[in-house]
Design a protein around this nucleic acid. Sequence first.
DNA 1: ACGATTTACGACAATCGTAACGATC
DNA 2: GATCGTTACGATTGTCGTAAATCGT
Lengths: 317, 317
Amino acid sequence: MPLNLPHLKALCTIVDQGLHLSQAADALHRSQPALTRQIQQLEAELGVTLFERSRNRLLGLTPQGVLVERLARRIVHDSGDLTRLAEDLRDETQGELVVATTHTQARYTLPQAIRRFMAQHPGVALGLRQGTPAQCCEMVARGEADIAICAEGGREDVVQVPCFRMQRIVVTPPRHPLLKVATPTLADVAAYPLITYAEGFSGRTAMDEAFRSAGLAPRVILSAIDADVSKTYVEMGLGIAILASVTFDTKRDRGLRCVGAQHLFPSSVLNVVLRPHSYVRGFARAFIRAFAPGLGDVEIDQALAGAPPARAVLPEL
Amino acid sequence: MPLNLPHLKALCTIVDQGLHLSQAADALHRSQPALTRQIQQLEAELGVTLFERSRNRLLGLTPQGVLVERLARRIVHDSGDLTRLAEDLRDETQGELVVATTHTQARYTLPQAIRRFMAQHPGVALGLRQGTPAQCCEMVARGEADIAICAEGGREDVVQVPCFRMQRIVVTPPRHPLLKVATPTLADVAAYPLITYAEGFSGRTAMDEAFRSAGLAPRVILSAIDADVSKTYVEMGLGIAILASVTFDTKRDRGLRCVGAQHLFPSSVLNVVLRPHSYVRGFARAFIRAFAPGLGDVEIDQALAGAPPARAVLPEL
DNA sequence: ACGATTTACGACAATCGTAACGATC
DNA sequence: GATCGTTACGATTGTCGTAAATCGT
């Protein structure tokens, strides 16, 4: 009748794997029967039925199981933090850091920070995971990534620390009519076929809202995760793109032109995303600092403790 | 190479027991050698030396040990919450509830709430622990009490939910000169020998401050934890008492008189004290509600989540 | 019939407690 | 010399993995 960490980890993994006992067993490098027993023991020990079963299939968590799982998850995460903390105390310079982010950040804003970080922390294995902002936040929430860097997050179960403000630009082919207007209006932009970020990406919602409230319904012919993809199609003359300003490099993008659009759309906020109350290793803090020098230990600790995300003025990216 | 809950519990208990391995072993109902190994295994597993030792004496935690202990404590507490949650899910009406509070509350403000609670929750074993506000908060922080009810708390590691406002009164013997004054001033009160709460009790600090800022240095001849004790000495004619208004009952205290003092001292705030992020059982919430009907589940959950203790107007007690 | 979970059993590993040891005050 | 923490050893308990059984689709 023990209640130990493996039992709780089993519970969490089974839920994570979509209630597939066998998959969970693989993920934990254990046999299926072992997992079955873990759960049985857990249910016996707690005296609570955790899973809805249909004789030999797990259908879902019971309402009670949901409550138990939430607490179990906290414990498992904390125990992970404990081993990470210990690693950190043993050797601050060695370890693994998984950063989840979007294509735009990975491609345009992170490289310099990563170069600096890797130079100063040669012993740290850096892992980059790409995904939508929602996926990035989820990776952090599930502990699959240590930190995420993305805009437009908005989950309840993660901590978001604002670090930069991002402006929009309009990218066009050379000699595009829009380039002749000094400061284009929303209507000017909406006149052309648009290529921009997919739903859920850096300020796409804010962009849609800006057009909507101006009574405009622009024709979005292509939405992509990837700014490079968007630019390619602009080069092909299929339309004009609304992108984050960081994605445009005058030297590199010779075949394109760029018009500022900060007056058309609200700037979006780029966040560092962390798991609440998690232990953030020394070199993870160093990474954040390398990316956003304004975020020191005090800011991070305040955010982790649940303080409101207060920073009056954010630097432009 | 296991890292299990007993190991972490051992660490916490050893620290709680003042670094006495033997005492900790007793508290855990284990043998001393078992504990020695738990710690050795923990240190080996984490690769971190947790204790400063002088060959065969535990002197203290290493700086790293402090960090590890903090996290371990959270995990241990959460695992306690887990079993409590399970108990709750199994049978919402059975269990144990330990309430830490001061004499004044236990004697004067809680009885009615406790009567109601026990009538509605006959299966719950109610435990009352008395102590100073600081001790009460510490009991909650250490998990020895489920909730505390006290004023003048002020620890960082507990959640305080304001629920009532308490006024002061001056208690005198019959035919005391002070009774002839309509509304006595601080100077009037300070003219007589004072009997009041000990340091650290419901608004004693605020009281001292009120006198001090009025340039008065009253003669406190006796300070007690216990309002009944104070009243006894007032009856004996040794002085007048400044107490919480709830401690005076016209019917019961025939041998005493009472003058309002709300205009002399700031009212003090009575708090419900909880451990942050803890699981609060259904009947614990019921107890809080029985005592302070204004504190429902939403208020409690907000406070647990770390929201600011906002409640504009507190009812008088 | 196949895929999935649950039960049965033998082997291994971990933990505990008692007893003996070493060191300190 | 008494107390406290550490080491050594035998016994108990628990957990794992393989193999067989059961159930549903």
